[in-house]
Computed example of a mutant assay.
Amino acid sequence: MGLVESKRPVVLIVEDEFLLRMDAVDMIGAAGFEVAEAANADQAIEILESRPDITVIFTDIQMPGSMDGLKLARAVRGRWPPIKIVATSGHVGVRETDLPDGGRFLAKPYSPMQVTGVLRELTGGG
């Protein structure tokens, strides 16, 4: 058998809190997605610039650094329009209208079922 190119959707998780990021990586990986991770928006942009295979960005809204998750979402929509956006926060109420078109919001704490449900819906998988 030859090597099969991975066709699983790739989800970029952007979360500055290490333990929350690990949880999200485990949760999303267990759901059958390939995972990339970044600790902040700047790292996320670097990854997006080097990897054309990112399908969805799953970002926290409160993050230290030059951009929060909402700014990151707008930057991604501007530069990489096909990438789907899921934003999450435990502190601020975000309306879907605060996000670029098609962006989704999940309040923390979220359940694996909620996360995988939204990701499958956005990627047409599952």
Results as ranks from 00 to 15, higher is better:
Ala38Asp: 05
Leu3Val: 11
Ala41Gln: 04
Leu48Met: 12
Asp23Asn: 14
Ala24Asn: 13
Ala39Cys: 09
Val11Gln: 04
Glu5Thr: 11
Gln43Gly: 13
Asp42Phe: 02
Ala36Lys: 10
Asp26His: 10
Arg21Ser: 12
Val25Thr: 07
Val10Tyr: 04
Val4Lys: 14
Val35Ser: 13
Val10Ala: 08
Glu5Arg: 11
Met27Ala: 14
Ile47Ala: 08
Ala41Lys: 08
Leu20Asn: 07
Gln43Cys: 04
Lys7Cys: 00
Asp16His: 14
Ile28Lys: 00
Glu15Tyr: 01
Ile45Cys: 02
Glu34Asp: 12
Val11Asn: 00
Asp26Gln: 14
Leu3Thr: 13
Ala41Met: 07
Gln43Trp: 01
Ala30Gly: 01
Ala30His: 04
Met22Ser: 07
Gly29Cys: 11
Glu17Ala: 10
Leu48Thr: 01
Glu5Phe: 08
Leu48Ile: 11
Ile28Cys: 06
Ala38Leu: 08
Glu15Val: 09
Leu3Glu: 14
Arg8Tyr: 00
Met27Lys: 07
Glu17Phe: 14
Asp42Ile: 02
Ala38Phe: 05
Leu48Pro: 05
Leu48Phe: 07
Val35Arg: 13
Met22Arg: 13
Ile13Gln: 00
Glu5Asp: 11
Val14Ile: 12
Phe18Pro: 09
Leu12Tyr: 08
Asp42Cys: 06
Ala41Ile: 01
Ala24Tyr: 12
Ser6Leu: 10
Arg8Gln: 06
